[in-house]
Simulated assay, not measured.
Amino acid sequence: MTITERPVSERPFDAVLCDLDNVIRFYDSSALAALERLAGLHEGTTAKLAFSPELDRPLLLGRISREQWAESIAERLREDFAEARSWELAEAMTRSPFTADGTVVSVLRGARAAGLSLVLVTNAALDLDEDLAAMGLTDLADHVVSSAREGVAKPDPEIYAIAAARAGAAPERCLFVDDRLENVEAAVAFGMTGVHYRGPDDLRAALAFLS
């Protein structure tokens, strides 16, 4: 865990601003990996293309749907690899099954029950609400700040300002949790306390003051 140091007080934060993917939500890419092996591609090839800025950015800013994203991935697979399974691979990539980490959800619910404002701050597609409903998490947070809805994505400072405002807390009273170091560093530069998330113990340690 990487956490910035601040003066110790009884309750150092009024809000937790938490990332979704790779903190709360985790994807099962086994079906995609199997398809890549069948196609003679290295595992991770599809994801590397899908998350390249030119394909991923329009999705995260709400300019295209998940279906349009899949189409762009399939097109790139055909262009770069002459891949006959391009659409099958793209569908497996964009529709990979996912689950929520029950331990993390429990810790976050506990923080909210203790009186902290909880805001999800995520670079996500337009159908995020459907995904949260599928995981039974529509009631997890007080607010959800989604890049696709706001038209701005982490690590842009604007999304941190939006999240703090929704939380009703000054930046210096916000704990920001994310698995991507660049996003954490941007939050710290904005005045927040940042936790570079690698596992549930990182979150527990940051919220130990609630015990």
Rank of each mutant, 00 (worst) to 15 (best):
M1F: 12
I3G: 14
E5W: 11
P12T: 12
P12R: 14
A15C: 10
V16G: 12
V16L: 12
C18D: 08
N22L: 10
N22P: 02
S29Q: 02
S29N: 05
A31D: 08
R37V: 10
A39M: 05
E43S: 03
G44K: 02
T45R: 01
L55N: 04
D56I: 09
S65P: 09
A74Y: 07
L77G: 01
R78S: 06
R78E: 05
R78Q: 06
F81D: 03
R85A: 05
S86M: 03
S86G: 06
M93S: 05
T99W: 06
A100R: 00
D101Y: 08
R112A: 07
A113R: 12
G115W: 10
G115C: 11
L118D: 13
A124D: 11
D131G: 14
D139I: 13
H143S: 15
H143E: 15
S146H: 09
V152E: 14
P157W: 11
I162H: 11
R166V: 12
A167H: 09
A167D: 13
P171N: 13
E172K: 08
L175H: 13
D179G: 07
R180Y: 06
V184C: 07
Y197L: 02
L203N: 04
R204S: 00
A205H: 03
A206G: 03
A206K: 01
A208Q: 00
